[in-house]
Simulated assay, not measured.
Amino acid sequence: MGSGGVVKQVRSGLATRLAALREHAPGTREGSDPEELHQMRVSVRRMRAMLQSARPFLDRERSEPLRAELGWLGRALGPVRDLDVLLEHLREEAADLPEQEAAARLLAGLDAEYAHARGDLLAALDSDRYRELLARLEAATEGLPAAKSESDGGEKALRDLVLRQFRKLREDVDALDADPPDERLHALRIRGKKVRYTAELAEPALGKPVRRLIKAAKNFQDVLGEHQDACVAEQRLRELAGGSDAEAAFVAGRLVEREELRKADRRARWPEAWAKLAEEAQQLRGGSR
């Protein structure tokens, strides 16, 4: 399998994710099940990651504009999904508090923000730009061209794609100090997600070693994702408290305390998740550096 084989994997992956995007689009429009939007957004992110990771093998005049348009769609989906996650979590956390009316007042601002974001999302899905993107993705599943200068291909090429993404992550981890700021941990999560999505592209060809790495990358991503969710929740609660009455601000303070505990727990856990991911990457590398 030459570089054309890598491109074939990308085309296949795009076809799978495009089918998922279309499957979940009606539910995203309807809006009653947040999982529909989540799956649609994941499909967009995975397609973008495939195109980025396989850039050395692709005709960039075709692949990069497509990746940019997927970025536009991801940004259209993101605010609603982020608010879905935030509101669900905060409502669960507030459910055992006695100040239920104050909690409802506190979160009312997020409800209004959510309604506005939903309007923007629906406008994007109703746009000519979205329909044109679907058509371009459909064409790419069959005719996305390879780069004119072909590189080494086969399983080695796919393994190298995964390990290249992992090396970028390892460099970022190695550059951290003992107590990294929140934004650096968030950047690690994004890097880890790229490792995972690139591994998923390679999984059909590389099999079990990559499946183990995918599992470890997912755990790494999840731990740091929960840390980031806690950071965002804490920040938004502080913002909401600033414009709230005294009782609602008190509720915000209690919820902030819980987010601080969640952050501390995930900070303590992420090095272990990283060590497991590094171990699996070493196995994929075949025991050599």
Rank of each mutant, 00 (worst) to 15 (best):
K156F: 07
E279D: 14
G243D: 04
R285D: 09
A187R: 12
A112Q: 15
R258P: 01
A117R: 14
R62S: 14
E260D: 06
A248D: 02
A102D: 01
K215I: 12
F220I: 04
E150L: 10
Q9F: 12
F57R: 04
L277G: 03
R118E: 06
F250D: 15
A146R: 07
M50K: 12
M50D: 11
K156G: 09
R48G: 11
A139C: 10
K8P: 13
G4L: 14
K276Q: 15
A103G: 06
E138S: 10
Q165M: 09
D172S: 14
L106S: 01
H227P: 03
R81C: 13
K168L: 12
R238G: 10
R131A: 08
D82H: 13
A187S: 12
D177L: 08
R170F: 07
Q235C: 13
A19G: 07
S127Q: 02
R75V: 11
K148F: 12
I214V: 11
A241Q: 01
G5P: 06
A123W: 14
L37M: 06
Q228S: 15
D174Q: 13
L188F: 00
R289Y: 11
A25R: 13
E93N: 05
L237G: 05
K276D: 12
A252Q: 01
G225C: 00
T141S: 09
R60G: 15
A25W: 10
L90K: 01
F166D: 10
H186D: 14
